[in-house]
Design a protein around this nucleic acid. Sequence first.
DNA 1: ACAAGAAATGAATGCTGATTCACTTGTTAT
DNA 2: ATAACAAGTGAATCAGCATTCATTTCTTGT
Lengths: 209, 209
Amino acid sequence: MAYRETEKMRQRKALARQRILDCARSRVSEGGFRNAQISQVASQAEVATGTIYRHFESKEELFAEVFRAATEQEVARVAKDLAGDGDAIERLERALQRFARRALRAPTMAWALIAEPVDPRVEAERLLYRRAYAELFETAIREGMAAGTLPAQEARHSSTCLVGAIAESLVGPLSPTQTAHHETSITDHEPLVKTIVGFCLQGVTGTRR
Amino acid sequence: MAYRETEKMRQRKALARQRILDCARSRVSEGGFRNAQISQVASQAEVATGTIYRHFESKEELFAEVFRAATEQEVARVAKDLAGDGDAIERLERALQRFARRALRAPTMAWALIAEPVDPRVEAERLLYRRAYAELFETAIREGMAAGTLPAQEARHSSTCLVGAIAESLVGPLSPTQTAHHETSITDHEPLVKTIVGFCLQGVTGTRR
DNA sequence: ACAAGAAATGAATGCTGATTCACTTGTTAT
DNA sequence: ATAACAAGTGAATCAGCATTCATTTCTTGT
């Protein structure tokens, strides 16, 4: 009996794993999932390609985890905004507004998370998180309905519409072709943000005919 | 001086080309773009794989054309509905409703067109057509604004929200995992359709705060 | 019927990365 | 120091398809 996994080793491994995840994420935030190859991630993380497979089942698994981590952060932020002060409408407004602004500030990553064509394993993760967003909004809508600030409606479907409206509105402005050139130009996105949020709130606040 | 392309030949070629397109489309409507391989299309069209390259630059080009044709049809239908009788609101309602119902009736094809991960050449086509839809809606919204049936708004952005809301709402119900099992079960989609349309109309008709 | 060329064929090739694995290096307990 | 085993390495392999191209089959005008 000689080698036994020790705490030190466990930490070192965890560290390496984290470093790989971080590098993968940084790769994605540069050029999207498309040009994040295993070999690149490996060299950036200063490990051999083979090592990556010691920490992750497969490429898809690795990137699914990258996706998960990145999106969890976003979901948490939205959740926080939705849990803040004010009535349901105000909270929805704040959450939507900030979400859109954050996305527009980190366009490549946002595009990768929202709209980039990805392989099925990662796409599955995306669907999961779209649902997560929708559920957060759904809860807020229900609260609004209970408090009487929002009219009766199918909260589930409304929230989905909301997610779709904001995602679609961002796709254009975020897409690499749009972003590529005037990377630095300070396009004023505020009108866009205002309309998106306006539309969404209307959709939710209006009374059904 | 011997062979000269004749009318008969030209027609025959056009026919073959069309048959290839049709088969490609049928492949897609079965399992999406993902499992539509050149070799399969070829065998279904009863030509050799090489022949396909006599008619199309590349796989992507072929499928971009499939996409174009399928989507053009849809765009035309929406355009027609938007050009019908009634005020802007009624026309928008009709167009949205029918669009959703058609999609839900042919889920695999709709999913391929709306949400399936596809390669860049085809994705480009998709963006184009999302824009086309948005522009149709935009026009309708402007007409409504001019006629006084709709309040002043950024028609461009509103229409994008509209496209997003409807697309997102359909993704869940259309996705293969949802569709696969209860293929035949007659899920009643009407409540969904009703909420989507309600949300969209609200988003467009409500007065800005 | 035949020559000149076009179109069709499909087996062989090529490409792009992900994945593997025989080997090297590192770690632990004695 | 050494045995026992784990972790790390990266060149070689593999896989899945798209694409090519030498060869065969078909068309046409004379």
